[in-house]
């Protein structure tokens, strides 16, 4: 059985099917949490923000443009763009009110984080290193990387979500990956040598 498309789920929910809403939450919560975390950092705010996004979805689900009729992929793209945009705005509100960002960036830029001991400490836990280096990136780079690599959004979709041009998205991705690549050298080399997949 093929799973229902986003468009079908949305329609079913509008017609009163509550399980359709649950399915939408199941499907999209992961990337939205990731996206929120890319902006807000690890913490309880992310969940509150994503909850707010789904509340908004429950309360006033977006209308799919007629041009997407009969095109599940286009409908899905439209919904995703909507979810990410709402998510992003909610993050910005939260961030602005808590000034969380400057705090987190201070922590990320603390001397411990800059210490070169990456090779020895982190080889044991590559994931933790990747997470940490991702956290250290400027928020705009981190956001586009998370959207591209973890939420699997295209440059074009990211441009719509973040209000930037596709060219700028490309630059941010490139800059972010370059920095990550430099900082994750030990992990990359360890992997080459050890042949771990």
């Amino acid at each position: 059985m093929t799973p229902a498309s986003d468009g079908q789920l949305l329609q079913a929910f509008r017609a009163g099917d509550r399980s359709a809403f649950a399915a939408l939450v199941d499907r999209h919560q992961g990337v939205l949490l990731r996206h929120a975390r890319a902006i807000l950092g690890v913490g309880p705010d992310c969940e509150a923000v994503v909850q707010e996004v789904f509340l908004k979805l429950a309360q006033s689900p977006p209308l799919l443009p007629p041009s997407t009729d009969g095109d599940p992929q286009a409908q899905s793209a439209h919904l995703r763009a909507w979810l990410h945009t709402v998510n992003r705005n909610a993050c910005m509100d939260t961030q602005r009110s808590t000034r969380r960002r400057s705090l987190r960036e201070e922590q990320a830029a603390s001397p411990e984080a800059h210490d070169g001991g990456i090779a020895t400490v982190e080889q044991a836990d590559t994931r933790a290193a990747v997470e940490r280096e991702l956290e250290r990136l400027p928020v705009d780079q981190r956001e586009v990387l998370v959207l591209r690599l973890l939420a699997d959004r295209s440059y074009k979709e990211i441009a719509e979500i973040t209000g930037r041009s596709i060219g700028t998205v490309g630059w941010l991705v490139s800059e972010g990956l370059q920095q990550l690549g430099e900082r994750l050298k030990p992990q990359l080399e360890g992997r080459k040598a050890g042949g771990r997949a």
Binding site: V25, Q29, R34, T126, R127, V130, L134, L177, G181, Q187
Partner: peptide, 22 residues
Amino acid sequence: LEGTIALVRELEAPPQQLSPSA
């Protein structure tokens, strides 16, 4: 670049979820 992309993509699992109370 490919290596870096792969490293980041591995972060995906396990998928993150809202808490039951949320």
